[in-house]
Amino acid sequence: MVASLALACHAVAQDTPVISGGVGFLTNTNQAGTTFLPIAEPLLAAPLGSRVLIESRAALIETIKPKTGLPRRYSNSFFAGLTYLQGDVIVAPHLNFVAGSFLIPFGTYNERLSPVWINPLQDGPLIASLGSMGTGTGVGAQVRGSAASSPNYSLTYAAYYSTRSGNQQFNSERSFGGQSSLYFKPQRVEVGLSYGRLLQGTHENFYGMHVWFEPKDTSFRLRSEFARGHHAQGYWVQADYRTTSWGGQGSWRRNFEPILQFQQTWRRDNTFSDGLPLVNTQRLDAGLNYNLPHSTRIMTSYSRQFSSTGDRNIWETGLTYRFLSPAWKGRNK
């Protein structure tokens, strides 16, 4: 009994809720002028008991952009909303149940790379809206987990159903879909497939595939994703390298992070229901980030976008900070 009490105390001692997230100040310069985007994305993770976790992420964004035709005059708008609010239950070793408002599991960007403190480039991919059902979140239920795992591979799955919600904070479309990924651990190669079906309006199907390769003991990452909708399709390929092997411990040269990304979209017809560019588009992004101490990052990038409506340059800079703190002071064991 004393042992079980000690175990319970140990478990509780590790389960203090966490407030994490990122804040940033981003700028975007194109032919229309410079837009400033102060942004905060706080995240709360609060365990309940030994098998439940409540998670939520919010976005607070102020957009300050130049007024058209009025040099040096700016307009501003403010947005605040919950990105997701979900309850997670560990049902069995291979089964987790999620209910509430959750990020739609399609491709890799929406669930893995969208937070401001993670994505190495400011802008999401051009195809980010394919499969994310317009809002990126679903309101309903989801099952997910590890179907099989060994030292050599891991097979994961996710399947969801979302109902339509017109609530301003929990906006979603009626849809269902899922994802499965096979990850070869020694080779650090992941191949995944995604599927989604919109169950209202045009009843579109979305298909996705992603391949990630991150060689072991290097700071190189190659990520790619392809998505196809009923009216458009596209892909992106991103190479990212962190110069951690340059210089000795503590050297300033270790903190650079060059990024190169190429993406392309095609329209299959003239129905514009998916958020992709209205004409076939190619875009090259070249970024250079510098990772400062204390999870602070300076981001810079130059993008050149090519399309029949006109080519354009996009310059982006930003400063992001990632924070992580206990919700209250606890005792370390």
Binding site: A45, L53, E55, D88, R112, G145, S146, P326
Partner: peptide, 26 residues
Amino acid sequence: RCHNPPEGFPQHVSGTIARHMRMRAS
């Protein structure tokens, strides 16, 4: 694979972070 490691965190939130990662990374 997705994000840089945080600078560190107190041990009494380690269970919460591990549970969060269990859900995110399946």
